[in-house]
Amino acid sequence: MKRNNDYDYREIAGEAMLIPIGPDAGIGGIVTLNGTAAVIWKLLGERCDRDYVLSRLLETYETDGKDAAEALDAFLAELKEKKLLLD
């Protein structure tokens, strides 16, 4: 999988968001991200790999590995559904 490069990540006035900047951004508009979502998006930019992101999240947050994996998988599925992540 890879991040859809037709979205630009921006932080404005403390708010994280993805802005459609290219023709393959789909018909949706600006996507707002909460704090954890923004962290995951940036980690996906470092290496677009589910296991890499999960390991970094577990290093950063005190959380149960199983719960974190489930939450991450659900979020990645949502990103794919919105075409923010491409196969």
Partner: peptide
């Protein structure tokens, strides 16, 4: 809603001196 989000963004921008628009 989008309008509420936009209004909130303008409010934060005003407080921080961000030229949002």
């Amino acid at each position: 809603t989008l309008n509420e989000y936009t209004a909130s963004l303008f409010k934060k921008s005003a407080a921080k001196g961000v030229p949002l628009s």
